[in-house]
């Protein structure tokens, strides 16, 4: 029993954990409470009842497994159970889940019920050992280690030691170098999209070219470059789509407070990148009265009537604007590519 007041050691406690026995083990201040018999220990009928309960659970479990197999065979995946207001259920999912889940649950419940009611429940006491290895073994290990070290000559043969260390230090290099071809270098790809002067603007999905008169004030069009589908299928990926998609909005010319370039609109029609400058979610939550565009991922808010500047949220940069005009046939086209990289910031962006 310790009563010393040295830092980090037990303080003035009268009997924190009791006194030590002959083997130096602490004895508890209050001994273990006497074991209390359960009803099942004293009443054979109660024990019999518990046994029957456990057996019922195991038996039911087996029955449910049979039911599972029956359900698997009988019910196809296109059968549904429509419970109106409660929901619609894939019948096979419900039946397989309830039978299998029930069966498994009952095995567990039975086993635990068995353990609690019928298995001996007297608490036992065991002694702990210190985590550390005993001193004798440690000393003997150290001796072995020193013997081995001496036998290897690792300490004396400096040249071997140093070259080995050097070789080991370099050996992971190929493992890292080999990762180089995981992907191409960025190059200028993050600064370019397939938009170019004269590139038709078409509606998403329906791919219709757009006349300025098609968009009323307050209108919104989700659009992309006319050649996108072709490029996408040729390249076999959606990389260009992920950069080139835009939204078109129209406001009255007086409502436009500023733009990223002189005359980049066409009669109040503005084209902005649809990719958020924060971490790249597509944004089209446009409120045509306030001209705010909200990102659904992190709530960056851009004012499209004011050069697409950030008015709220974690994004720092304005939404890049695409300069547009109309071609000879009267359809909206891009006047050039974006003048700044679209999407999230990156180190080389500057």
């Amino acid at each position: 029993m310790s009563t010393d007041l040295t830092p980090g050691s037990p303080g003035n406690l009268p009997a924190t954990t009791g006194t030590a026995d002959g083997a130096g083990r602490e004895q508890p201040l209050y001994p273990l409470a006497p074991h209390q018999l359960r009803l099942t220990d004293t009443d054979p009928r109660a024990a019999k009842r518990a046994e029957r309960q456990v057996a019922t659970m195991f038996g039911l479990s087996a029955l449910l497994i049979v039911a599972f197999v029956v359900a698997y065979v009988m019910v196809q995946t296109d059968q549904y159970l429509d419970l109106g207001n409660i929901g619609k259920f894939q019948l096979s999912n419900v039946l397989l889940g309830l039978t299998f889940g029930g069966a498994v649950f009952l095995i567990g419940a039975g086993a635990i019920h068995w353990a609690k009611k019928l298995m001996a429940d007297e608490e036992m006491v065991d002694y702990r050992h210190p985590a550390a290895t005993d001193d004798e073994t440690r000393a003997s290990l150290l001796e072995d280690f020193n013997d081995g070290l001496a036998e290897s000559g690792f300490a004396q043969r400096r040249m071997v030691r140093r070259t080995l260390i050097g070789a080991l230090a370099l050996f992971p290099v190929p493992l890292v170098v080999l990762l180089r071809d995981l992907g191409p270098l960025p190059g200028t790809s993050l600064r370019e999209t397939i938009w170019k002067a004269g590139e038709r603007i078409v509606t998403d999905v329906t791919l219709r070219p757009i006349r300025p008169s098609d968009i009323p004030v307050g209108g919104l069009v989700n659009a992309s470059p006319g050649s996108l589908e072709e490029v996408q299928h040729a390249e076999g990926n959606m990389n260009e789509r992920a950069k080139a998609v835009i939204i078109l909005v129209r406001m009255t010319p007086e409502q436009i407070k500023s733009q990223q370039g002189e005359g980049w609109d066409y009669n109040g029609i503005l084209a902005f990148s649809k990719i958020c400058t924060h971490v790249g979610c597509p944004i089209a939550l446009y409120q045509h009265v306030t001209h705010h565009l909200l990102c659904p991922c992190h709530q960056s808010t851009f004012d499209l009537s004011d050069s697409g500047n950030v008015v709220f949220g974690p994004a720092n940069r304005r939404l890049p604007q695409l300069p547009i005009t109309v071609d000879d046939a009267g359809y909206l086209v891009a006047s050039s590519d974006f003048h700044e990289p679209v999407g999230p910031s990156f180190w080389e962006r500057g």
Partner: peptide, 18 residues
């Protein structure tokens, strides 16, 4: 008609069949 803050999806850019 784009009520309140909802933008307008005109019949020209989002045709009746769409």
């Amino acid at each position: 008609t784009g009520p309140q803050n909802m933008p307008i999806f005109s019949n020209e850019t989002l045709p009746p069949e769409s």
